[in-house]
Structure formats: structure tokens, C-alpha cells
């Protein structure tokens, strides 16, 4: 068990390091001259004098050889220092920390909606023997993942804010302002949960051990909840890291649609003015969240699946 833990943590650190490297390659090598890119201030910035550019280059250490730049940035990143925003000079870490709370709020609310919606759809769809209800429920997730998230948000705003006047269309004041963003964010994620769980439930229900349970005389509800769900939840759990990453990425669009502050808005603003240090900070942060969630799942997994705990090959 200890060996398992050490291996997982080492793997997680490796992925993080590689994510840093990938983002470094994308953001600092691909543009050719990152300083010119940054200094142009997006599309409508004014050109700077060569001397000013050189000064900037020196300030960001970009006049050094690449390998030195990489080493320095990695070393700084290890100390939690991703540099400063080129727009306002704010520390990147501080900017992310500041933007985080509202994003965590809608992500958690969205996650809750996704699990309730996805879980309910999957359970009912695999349980019911009413044909049309099953088909309807199974069609729901594939419909939900086909809709553009930003469009769903706008349509919800149109309906619930402007037509019915029930909920606020923008802002982050009060719990009622959380409802529409959470539903918008949670809908595609919930659809994913529903699809994975329903597939895995119906696979499990075809397993011979379910026949064994039925042959004992166990009732359908008990089979569904006691035998099938626990086995089916295991494959569904493995997509959890992906689900959380989805929510984080979804916040980019959702926060724009609902004009809420947060990490998503910070991202959009940073990309808009090509603020490379901020974008890199956010990318590495997202990878860290993904890695942390997956690590957590890996640690929970053996508790739920005895086959892994005892080291059996599945």
C-alpha cells in the first residue's frame, strides 16, 4: 500500500512537471518573440521602440539562452512563483488566489447539479422497464452534450431572467445568482456522468453475478442498489478527474456569459492581452487540480474495490 502511494505521488509530480514544460514550450517557444507578442498588448496595442523591447526582454529574462530561461522559470515555479502579470505587474499566484473563490462556488454547485442530474438519469433509465421512458432518459445526455454551453446559458438567461423574471441574469450576489451558472456549467458534466454511469450500470446488470443474485430471489431494487451500483460506480469514478477539469474549463465560458468574476474571466482577460505568465499560471494550476483529484481517486479506489487493495490483477 505504501509503495502504491509513493508511486502515485511520484507519477503526479511527473505529470505536473511535464505540464509546466508543455506550457513553457507552447507559450514561450511557439510565438518566436514572446516579448513582442506581450508588448503588442493584443490586437490593438501600439508598437514599442526596439530599445524598450530590449529592456522588457531583460526584465523577463528573455535575453538568456532558452535552457537557462527554462531552468529559472521551473525553479521559480517550484517556489510557487509564476512571475508577474505583464498588464498590471500583479503576482500571478496572487491573481489566481484572488479569482478562485467565486469559481469554486459555481464549480461546486455545478458538480452537485451534475451528480444529482447524471446519477438520477442513469439510475432511472437502467431501472425502468417502461420503454419510452428509458429511451427518453437515454437520449437526454446525448442531447445535453450536443448543445453549446454558452448558448445554453444565454437561452436560460433569456427564459428565466427576461421572460419569467425569476433569477438574475448577471453578477455574483446572493445564492439565487448561482442557480443559472451552476445549471449551465453542470449540464454537460451531468450528461457525461449519466452516460458513463448508465453504460457501466447496464454492463454490470448483464454480469453473471447479477443472475446469481436474482437466482437467490433478491429483489430488483436491492440488486440495483446493493450489487450493481457499487460495481458500476468504479468505472464512473475514474472519469472524476476529467469531470473536475471540465468544470474548470467550463467556467471560462460560463463566467463570460453571466459576467461573473472568477478564474474564467481572468483567463479570458489574460488571453485577450496575451499575458503569457498569467496564462501559464492558470494552465499549470488546472493541471495541478486534475492531478490532485486523480490522486484522490486513486487513493479512494482501493477502499471501494477490494481487488486492487490486495494487489490482484483485474
Amino acid at each position: 500500500m505504501a509503495g502504491y502511494l509513493v508511486r502515485r505521488v511520484a507519477l503526479a509530480i511527473g505529470v505536473l512537471w511535464a505540464a509546466f514544460t508543455v506550457s513553457f514550450v507552447v507559450l514561450y517557444l511557439l510565438p518566436g518573440d514572446p516579448v513582442a507578442t506581450m508588448a503588442s498588448g493584443g490586437l490593438d496595442g501600439e508598437p514599442m521602440s526596439p530599445a524598450a523591447l530590449d529592456a522588457l526582454r531583460a526584465r523577463y529574462g528573455l535575453d538568456q539562452p532558452l535552457i537557462v530561461q527554462y531552468g529559472t522559470r521551473l525553479w521559480d515555479a517550484l517556489h510557487g512563483n509564476f512571475g508577474a502579470s505583464i498588464q498590471n505587474g500583479q503576482d500571478v499566484g496572487a491573481a489566481i488566489r484572488e479569482a478562485l473563490p467565486p469559481t469554486i462556488q459555481i464549480s461546486l454547485a455545478g458538480l452537485a447539479f451534475a451528480i444529482v442530474f447524471g446519477g438520477a438519469v442513469a439510475l432511472v433509465a437502467t431501472y425502468t422497464s417502461v420503454r419510452w421512458l428509458r429511451q427518453l432518459l437515454m437520449a437526454l445526455p446525448s442531447l445535453a452534450v450536443s448543445l453549446p454551453v454558452f448558448w445554453v446559458g444565454l437561452m436560460l438567461v433569456q427564459l428565466f431572467s427576461f421572460q419569467l423574471g425569476l433569477l438574475p441574469s448577471v453578477g455574483a450576489k446572493g445564492p439565487e445568482s448561482l442557480v443559472l451558472p451552476a445549471v449551465t456549467l453542470g449540464l454537460p458534466t451531468g450528461a457525461l456522468v449519466a452516460q458513463v454511469l448508465a453504460k457501466s450500470l447496464s454492463d454490470v446488470l448483464d454480469e453473471p453475478y447479477v443472475v446469481t443474485a436474482r437466482a437467490k430471489g433478491v429483489g430488483r431494487v436491492a440488486i440495483h442498489l446493493r450489487h450493481a451500483l457499487r460495481n458500476a460506480a468504479l468505472p464512473a469514478l475514474t472519469v472524476f478527474g476529467y469531470v473536475v477539469g471540465n468544470l474548470l474549463a467550463g467556467s471560462v465560458v460560463v463566467e463570460t456569459v453571466f459576467t461573473r468574476p472568477g478564474l474564467g474571466r481572468l483567463t479570458v482577460a489574460a488571453v485577450g492581452i496575451q499575458d503569457i505568465p498569467v496564462v501559464q499560471g492558470i494552465v499549470v494550476f488546472a493541471a495541478a487540480v486534475f492531478v490532485a483529484v486523480n490522486l484522490l481517486v486513486d487513493l479512494i479506489y482501493p477502499v471501494l474495490d477490494p481487488r486492487i487493495a490486495t494487489g490482484a490483477v483485474v
Binding site: 453473471p208 443472475v211 429483489g219 471501494l304
Partner: peptide, 26 residues
């Protein structure tokens, strides 16, 4: 529902493949 009281109680089943016929997490 009626069959439930017959299965196991009045007719028992020994299934085909023992390697997959038991719930792996129980």
C-alpha cells in the same frame, strides 16, 4: 415479484462460470 419467492427458495441455480458469477466487491 411472485417469481422472487420461488427463486432460491424452491428452485436453486448453480451457474455456468464460477469466476464471474460472484459479486467481486462483496
Amino acid at each position: 415479484k411472485a417469481f422472487r419467492s420461488i427463486r432460491g427458495r424452491r428452485i436453486g441455480l448453480i451457474p455456468q462460470d464460477p469466476t464471474v458469477s460472484l459479486n467481486p466487491v462483496q
